[in-house]
Amino acid sequence: MEHRIESGADALYMDERDHVATALRDMKAGETVQYRNAEGLRAVTVVDDIPFGHKVAVVAVEEGADVRKYGEVIGRAVVSITVGQHVHVHNIEGIRGRGDLGSKEAAAQ
């Protein structure tokens, strides 16, 4: 089977469990952009400027909850994130490699 990204989307959504899609072009706040999930093309209105390669939330995430991309956990939300927001270092943090939080067990809390 050939694997090809179907054209027509502005952002790439990797897995049905994901909270985010990756911008395939620079996006401006207020724009409605499209990404493709299993059901087809979906629209989301971005509320922040989002540069190429950065992530836009396509599902809301509560503060402290895991954030998924590639179907896997990439970190957790440090504040609640709403659909259309830029998802990056200002609103998510890593869970691993956190010497600043003391023990690994403390970091995992």
Partner: peptide
């Protein structure tokens, strides 16, 4: 990496 859109080591690793 962060300027390029990668937010955490987990995200980078998964890629």
């Amino acid at each position: 990496n962060i300027a390029g859109g990668l937010s955490t080591i987990e995200e980078k690793s998964l890629g």
